[in-house]
Amino acid sequence: MTKPYTLKKSLGQHFLHDENMCRKIVQQLRYQPGAQVLEVGPGGGALSKYLIEESIDYKAVEIDKEKYEYLQHTYPALKGRIILQDILQADIPFAGRFHVIGNFPYNISSPIMFRMLDWQEQVDEIIGMFQKEVAQRIAAGPGSKMYGILSVLTQAYFSVEYLFDVPPGCFTPPPKVMSGVLHCANLNNPFAIKNFPKFKQMVKMAFGQRRKTLRNALKGFIPVQDVEKELMDKRAEQLTVAQFVALYKRFFEANG
């Protein structure tokens, strides 16, 4: 008999046990048969056992060696398909475009999304489960207190849709918060951003001190005196994604 796996709080592990919810999450994938799909953090295989039944080229990245061994022993179809590595350190797992799905560990869910943004040229879509508050932040629009760095950066490349809640009782152990599932569809760099690291740096600086106006937050990063007073007197949360992109392009792409 397979040795039961253990839950590791240090890795933020909360495993889905509600089979209807597992199937519902997997059904959110929008792909053509044969598509490449990456599962982030398969854990005990709650989603994996349904994903391997789909007509996809499946791989998974798992940091926990115990889960890695458990999955390959319990689901022979997963042998050779799981990469034992930290997703934040992993190389891009496929050549060409691929889809991403996962119950993202809460303690690194934001860094995982930053990783997906680094890979955005190849990531067709993301079906991600997050702590509800994080999911709401990613999907938030301007003028909201939840609107922030991850909202702007994600929405610069993806359309973001909050799909549904996942109650604590669906997990073992139950988390103390509600979870939420997002669908992010790649818009293929609609703003034609050429230098994502520089754009990211500017957005992070703008939100770094939320109560300050952009004039103070971006002073020293761009020549704020050359920007319309009306814009510089706003706070970061008041700007749309398009306005952030326009500001970035004005100083970092204006000369090519």
Rank of each mutant, 00 (worst) to 15 (best):
I112H: 04
K145Q: 11
F158V: 07
S159L: 02
F104N: 05
V100E: 06
L16E: 02
I108A: 12
V100R: 05
T2R: 14
R250G: 11
F207W: 06
T6M: 14
Q136I: 12
V100L: 13
I56E: 01
R137F: 14
F191Y: 15
F207K: 03
V40L: 06
K59P: 09
Q85L: 00
A135W: 03
N216M: 01
K200I: 03
R215W: 09
R115K: 15
G43V: 06
K234H: 10
W119Q: 03
R235C: 14
F221T: 13
L16Y: 05
R30H: 12
P4T: 10
Q122A: 13
Q85M: 05
L38C: 09
E230T: 15
G102K: 00
Y5T: 14
I222S: 00
A35P: 04
E66D: 14
Y50T: 02
G12T: 08
K145E: 03
L78V: 08
D118W: 08
V224Y: 05
E253N: 02
N216H: 12
N255M: 10
F15W: 11
R250W: 07
Q155I: 00
D165W: 11
V224R: 00
G34R: 02
P190H: 08
Q36T: 06
E39Y: 05
Y31T: 02
M205E: 13
G220V: 09
N103H: 10
F207N: 02
I63H: 07
Y147S: 12
A217C: 07
I25K: 03
M116G: 08
I126L: 10
G169S: 09
L47A: 04
N216G: 00
V61C: 10
Y50F: 13
Q122D: 12
K198I: 15
L182H: 01
I82D: 07
K204S: 07
H14Q: 02
T2I: 15
V61P: 03
L84M: 03
F251T: 08
S110G: 07
I52N: 05
I63V: 14
K194Q: 15
G256A: 03
L218R: 04
T240S: 15
P167V: 15
A254R: 06
F98H: 03
V37G: 07
G45K: 00
Q243K: 13
G148C: 08
Q136N: 14
Q36K: 12
H73R: 15
Y106R: 04
V166T: 14
D233F: 06
Q85N: 15
